[in-house]
Nucleic acid binder design. Structure first.
Lengths: 204, 204
DNA sequence: CAGCTGCTAGTCAAACTTGACTAAGGCGCA
DNA sequence: TGCGCCTTAGTCAAGTTTGACTAGCAGCTG
């Protein structure tokens, strides 16, 4: 799974309705251009592709209010919302050692109920343990680990990083269970960026 | 930088001359199919592309000795060797937070002299420090870090992982400077896999 | 007020990645 | 000996990613 679809779906969902440049800006605000493949081309491509697949509904072209070419606005469909939550749950659960996907998922985790987020992260910890065991076992040849020579350093690095990932995940679970942040169904959700003239529909 | 070019160049170089399937097998032995985009298609594509760019010389098609379609054998050219070392040095030095590239580089680091490898890794540590500082600074808004809400967890994760990466790198530098492994110009190099009928030209 | 710069919004071709498919020979075995 | 299956070696089309490019409008500036 690449992080782009999750990021784009999440960004569009936060606005309710968004055009490409808005998504692009959102992701930049998130710093996503630094840690994911969220270049303009990828974003516009993802929007079009997902519109073709029925995950997004493309509204008629509207002339831009602030200059530049006209915009196409997108909105999540029913299956788009399903896909979004499926991707989000998977990203929180599995350890596929790609931090961009996890980063995106952390950013959107508050769309889930608190207890579910914590549970998915606990599953993530289990996946990490399994992966660690698989690496150490698979790469322990008959003649002892020395036989691998410097190649063993690669496994060493992966194990080290898996341990660090586990430590961080456990910390996050603790913070979540300790009441940090605002999750789904707990009042005013957190919204990163609002566009021109857009109102926070949840503002009191 | 994707890891594929480095991996393919390194694999071909280790054999002196290799065909696609051999590279594919090497990388599988390394476990590279697990941590990089080293699928068959990518490997054959990289071989062809680099041959077109003059980094590899494609030898005439030879009928396979063991069945299957005929093979094309590749060999590093002069500029291929230059490119290989350039990629290797860059991969060891920069912190681009992509572990596949670093993994590949660790696998080939012994192609460099010991002192150079250690120096490149020390530079890597400095890059890590800088990156860590940039993240913490950039993502500390006026209103204090709480203002970010759960988004701060993303930065937290990156910082945590940078710290883990630094710790591991320092450990590796220590081992290298302590005399571990066999580097360029120090006698019999380490070779992962030998193909059918291939002899280790360095064997005593 | 012509020209320059910068922002908004998006397109496009070229390169890369993916996963499924092809094709040829050898091996076991009933 | 004929059949299915495995391994070897590679191709291909569809999808994705990249980085450079286009184009409209606004504000300044000399």
């Amino acid at each position: 799974m690449s992080a782009i679809r999750l990021l784009v779906l999440g960004a569009v969902k936060q606005h309710g309705r968004a055009h490409g440049y808005q998504v692009r800006n959102d992701l930049e605000y998130w710093g996503a251009h630094e840690w994911s493949h969220a270049k303009p081309g990828s974003i516009y491509h993802a929007l079009k592709q997902m519109a073709k697949q029925g995950l997004l509904h493309a509204h008629e072209v509207a002339p831009s209010a602030v200059g530049g070419p006209p915009r196409v606005e997108y909105e999540l469909t029913g299956s788009g919302t399903e896909e979004y939550f499926a991707l989000l749950r998977e990203a929180l659960t599995t350890y596929d050692q790609k931090m961009d996907v996890l980063s995106a998922a952390i950013g959107f985790m508050v769309d889930l109920p608190r207890e579910e987020a914590a549970e998915l992260l606990r599953r993530r910890v289990r996946a990490l343990d399994e992966w660690r065991a698989a690496v150490t076992e698979y790469y322990t040849p008959e003649g002892g680990p020395e036989q691998l020579g410097h190649i063993g350093e690669i496994m060493h690095m992966w194990v080290h990083s898996a341990d660090a990932g586990k430590e961080w995940t456990l910390g996050l679970i603790e913070r979540i269970e300790g009441g940090a942040y605002v999750f789904a169904g707990e009042g005013d959700p957190f919204v990163g960026v609002l566009a021109e003239g857009e109102e926070n529909p949840y503002a009191s």
